[in-house]
Design a protein around this nucleic acid. Structure first.
Lengths: 191, 191
DNA sequence: GCTTCCATGTAATGCGTTACATGATTTT
DNA sequence: AAAATCATGTAACGCATTACATGGAAGC
């Protein structure tokens, strides 16, 4: 149930409409907590009903500008320091690894190599973002943005290294199982 | 929609009942793709209706032993090699980092330190699992199990290092913002 | 005989996605 | 005048969680 906290968090930086928040979700929270338009408007309605946010002003085209209330701020802080973060357990990527013996070493290695490539690509994208956001915001905001970005960089780097290592291990098994193929078939060594 | 593939993957190793599968989910897939009893029985029903699995035998207490069909195996392989894995974007842990400026440096540092501790704990648990499963299964199964476990180890190690680094950066900001506290207030240096 | 384990199912509720639906204002 | 953007809302559907509900078989 973190969507509400994401909304409260964004509103804690200043008032915004549902539409504004949607843009922010698409831009800066896309890789952390994606949300759709439907979800946002529904959540804003609920938050307003519960008194955690309030409509501060109405603009053209039915625009409603929401503002966080003191209760909202309290709930945000409570969540931040007292509710322990949920771990993200589901991993499609890893689930597949468990079943890779169903497709043979060639395809398995291919899968892992593609994971490595994807990790490199994501890493590069994050480096691009870092260049773009350098020096934005005040001290604290910049620091926490940096910290989040650094996690992305470390995660993608670790994923790349792991996937390459894993592809290597699969390749070793491949050699071991088919030593008769090719003339360099000295595969008796198992380290 | 990976639950079905998790089920197909498990059944690809041999027939099992819903109850058996549930135990396997609780034991070995808990950290990769958790599933509840309700979900499992529903999914088995759907898979059977679509011909991807079949009831191979009925036992005592209404036990139904499911078996993967050729279509099921084909679907599993298709998913493994042709469907690109979905990335797990939502991260409660990281979402909080974005809003840490709402709680002050002390609480923020505390949050990051607890993340580091948790990562250490998870890492240790994985090491325990590794000791326990050493040498189980045939070559291929052991390899892919190892690879999955290795990811867990690298992820938790990276998380620990990152969280400790981040806590250090917050501590530096803390010093910078409150240099008057304590007598060792030489905080003019910024790296 | 009692407890534990095996074994399957249904119902209610919530979150998330996709699609549908509408209209006002600003920009070109 | 047309197109793009701003702006909000509803509906249908699927997946996940929790709780409810039932009963047979095996072990002590």
């Amino acid at each position: 149930m973190s969507l509400r906290h994401a909304v409260l968090g964004l509103l804690s930086a200043g008032p915004a409409s549902g539409y504004d928040l949607l843009k922010t979700f698409e831009l800066s929270l896309e890789n952390v907590w994606p949300a759709t338009q439907s979800q946002l408007y529904a959540e804003l309605g609920r938050l307003a009903q519960e008194g955690l946010v309030r409509v501060a002003a109405e603009g053209p085209r039915g625009r409603k500008e929401y503002e966080i209330t003191e209760e909202g701020r309290a709930e945000l802080r409570h969540w931040l320091v007292e509710v322990s973060p949920a771990v993200n357990r589901r991993s499609d990527m890893l689930l597949r690894v468990f079943f890779l013996d169903q497709v043979g070493t060639g395809a398995a290695r291919g899968y892992l190599e593609r994971l490595a490539e994807r990790a490199v690509h994501e890493h590069d994208q994050l480096l691009g973002i870092r260049e773009f956001v350098i020096g934005q915001g005040d001290d604290a905001l910049r620091l926490y943005g940096d910290i989040a970005l650094e996690w992305g960089l470390r995660l993608t780097a670790a994923q790349r290294e792991w996937a390459e290592w894993a592809a290597g291990r699969v390749a070793a098994l491949e050699q071991e199982k088919a030593p008769e193929q090719g003339k360099a078939g000295q595969s008796a060594e198992r380290q």
